[in-house]
Design a binder for these strands. Structure first.
Length: 476
RNA sequence: GCCAGGGUAGUCUAGUGGUUAGGCAGCGGACUGCAGAUCCGCACUACAUGAGUUCGAAUCUCAUCCCUGGCUCCA
C-alpha cells in the first residue's frame, strides 16, 4: 500500500510521491503569537504531528518548517497595549506555545522561522513581483498583489471571481487604496498606529503583509517547490490561495504538491468563540484536571477532515479509553504468572494482521479512527488469550512492541515508557500497611486504607501478583 | 447567493453494493474477602425521509427534511 493524502487542490485522495526519494519537505502554518493557542489550533498541530510521525514511520526523512507570525495587527496592538516592545511581547507567547506543544507530545519542527527575522527575503520576493508587473503601489504607499494577473487564482479554494454585484458594492463601501477588493497587501506602508514597528527598506517604510511571510520562508527553507503544505481549512482562502499566487508568480514553478487541510473543531456543537464562552486554551483544560493524553486521543478519535465536536463528555470518555489502553500495556508488560508457556501462533498472526490494518488505515488519508479500532481489536484478543493462559511471554512482548510502534505515531499512551510513577513515601507506607491488614484478613482496616488512598488520588487493585496502584485523574 | 461537510444502536466515531463495526456509558454473569482490572453475555444487526437502479442498497441515483462550517482576522 501507498500513503494517500487528500489534496485540497484536486479534491481527491492522491498517492503521495515525494519530490526527492525518501525525503519529505513539509510546511505548516504556525501560530500568530499574540495570545495562547486554543484547542482548535491544537487540533491542527496534533494532526500535523501525526502526519509527520506517520511519514517517519513509513521511513521518510522529514524536514518540517513551521512559521511563527510575530508581526501583524494583533501582535502590534498587544505590545502597544502593554507598553512593551513587540519582540518582548511575542517572546512570551512563543514560550507558551512551546510549553503547550510539549504537553501534548507534539514534536517540534526542525525550523521555526519568525516573520521579523525574514524581512529581507520578503522584500526580495516583493521586488520580484513588482518587476514582473503583478504587484503595484496603492495610493497609500502599500504594495498590493494584482490577482487579475494570476491566471490560476481561485484554483485551490474554488472561489470564483467574476465581478459580482456584491463585490463591486463592497469596493465602493470601503475606502480601499487598492484597485480591486480581492487584491491583497504584500507590504503595508507605515501608519502612526504601527508606532515603532516598521522596517525601512528598498520598497518603503512599513511591514510585511500576512501572506508573504509564508511564501518567503517556506521557499527559503524547503525550496521553490516542496511536498506538503498543511493547515486548517480556514486558511484555504485567502491565505493559501494568496501564497500560491505570490510564489508561482515569482518563480514560475509549481509551489506545493500536496495541500492538506484539517477541518475545524466545534465546542458543544457550536463554533468556538470567546463570546459564546466555549473558548478553551490547553491551559484551561489542564486547570480543570484533564489529561493531555486524553485531549490528544480525543483530537485523533475523529478523522481530520471531519468536523470534531469537542465536549467534556467526550473528553471524559477519552480519558477512560486512554486509561484502558494504558492498563492494557501495564498488564502485558507485567503479566508475570498470568502468561502461558506456549507460543500462540494464532495470536501472533493476529498481531501481524493488526499492523497491516493499522498501516492500511493510516495509508488511507490518515484514518486514525480506523487505526484505533484495529488496535482495540488486538487488545481484546490479547486479553482473551491472557485470560485463557494461552499467550506466551514472547507473544506479549510482540504485542507490546507493536503498540509502542503505533504509539510512535499517535503518542496517546503514557509518555513515561512505563517506568513506575513516583508516589510519596507515606503512600507507599500505606500500601504496605494495607497488605499487612489483608494478610490478617482485617478487611475493615484494609478497605479504609484503600479509601484513604483513593482520596489522595491513588487507586489500589489487588492482583494475584500482589497489589498494583495507579494514579487517577480528578477530571470534572 | 456561492463553496463545503454531515445526519450510523443510549452516546460518540469508522466503514462498506451482499459477510459478526470500534470506543465510551449501562445491565446480568464469571473471577474477587470486597472493590478494581479482565473475560463471557445482553439491549443491538444500526445507518434522516421518500422514490428509483439492482438478484440484493445503509452504501449508487434523484428528490426532500434537518444540522454545521467557510466565503472578513481565524487551526
Amino acid at each position: 500500500m501507498v500513503l494517500k493524502l487528500y489534496n485540497t487542490l484536486t479534491r481527491k485522495k492522491e498517492e503521495f510521491r515525494p519530490i526527492k526519494k525518501g525525503e519529505v519537505g513539509i510546511y505548516t502554518c504556525g501560530p500568530t503569537v499574540y495570545d495562547c493557542a486554543h484547542i482548535g489550533n491544537f487540533r491542527a498541530y496534533v494532526f500535523e504531528d501525526v502526519l509527520k510521525r506517520y511519514l517517519r514511520y513509513r521511513g521518510y526523512r522529514v524536514r518540517h518548517v513551521m512559521n511563527l507570525t510575530d508581526v501583524d495587527d494583533k501582535t502590534i496592538a498587544g505590545s502597544k497595549k502593554e507598553g512593551i516592545p513587540l519582540n518582548e511581547f511575542t517572546a512570551r507567547y512563543i514560550r507558551i506555545f512551546f510549553d503547550d506543544i510539549k504537553t501534548l507530545n507534539i514534536e517540534p519542527a526542525g525550523v521555526y522561522p519568525k516573520a521579523t527575522e525574514h524581512i529581507d527575503e520578503m522584500v526580495a520576493l516583493i521586488k520580484k513581483l513588482l518587476e514582473k508587473g503583478v504587484a503595484y503601489h496603492g495610493e497609500d504607499g502599500s504594495i498590493y498583489f494584482d490577482i487579475s494577473k494570476f491566471e490560476g487564482y481561485g484554483r485551490l479554494s474554488k472561489v470564483r471571481f467574476d465581478e459580482s454585484k456584491e463585490s463591486k458594492e463592497r469596493t465602493k463601501l470601503d475606502e480601499y487604496a487598492k484597485d480591486e477588493v480581492r487584491d491583497f497587501a504584500l507590504w503595508k506602508a507605515w501608519t502612526p498606529r504601527d508606532g515603532d514597528v516598521f522596517w525601512d527598506t528598498e520598497i518603503g517604510k512599513g511591514r510585511p503583509g500576512w501572506h508573504i511571510e509564508c511564501s518567503a520562508m517556506s521557499m527559503k527553507y524547503l525550496g521553490d517547490t516542496f511536498d506538503i503544505h498543511a493547515g486548517g481549512v480556514d486558511l484555504v482562502f485567502p491565505h493559501h490561495e494568496n501564497e500560491i499566487a505570490q510564489s508561482v508568480s515569482a518563480t514560475g514553478k509549481r509551489f506545493v504538491n500536496y495541500w492538506v487541510h484539517n477541518e475545524h473543531l466545534l465546542v458543544e456543537g457550536r463554533k468556538m468563540s470567546k463570546s459564546l464562552g466555549n473558548f478553551y486554551t490547553l491551559r484551561d483544560l489542564l486547570e480543570r484536571g484533564h489529561d493531555p493524553n486524553a485531549i490528544r486521543y480525543l483530537l485523533l478519535s475523529s478523522h481530520y477532515r471531519q468536523k470534531l465536536n469537542f465536549t467534556f463528555k467526550r473528553l471524559n470518555a477519552a480519558r477512560n479509553t486512554v486509561q484502558r489502553l494504558s492498563d492494557f500495556l501495564d498488564r502485558i508488560k507485567n503479566a508475570g504468572g498470568l502468561v502461558g508457556k506456549e507460543w500462540n501462533e494464532k495470536l501472533h498472526k493476529e498481531t501481524i494482521k493488526t499492523k497491516e490494518r493499522f498501516d492500511d488505515a493510516m495509508d488511507d488519508d490518515l484514518n486514525t479512527p480506523r487505526a484505533l479500532a484495529a488496535m482495540f481489536n488486538l487488545v481484546n484478543r490479547t486479553n482473551r488469550a491472557i485470560e485463557n493462559k494461552n499467550a506466551s511471554k514472547e507473544n506479549l512482548e510482540e504485542v507490546y512492541d507493536l503498540f509502542m510502534k503505533f504509539d510512535s505515531v499517535l503518542k496517546i499512551l503514557e509518555h513515561r515508557e512505563h517506568k513506575k510513577d513516583e508516589i510519596p513515601e507515606e503512600l507507599e507506607e500505606l500500601i504496605k500497611r494495607r497488605e499487612e491488614a489483608r494478610k490478617r484478613r482485617d478487611w475493615e482496616t484494609a478497605d479504609s486504607i484503600r479509601d484513604l488512598l483513593k482520596e489522595k488520588g491513588v487507586i489500589i487493585e489487588d492482583t494475584p501478583d500482589g497489589p498494583r496502584w495507579k494514579k487517577i485523574n480528578t477530571d470534572p
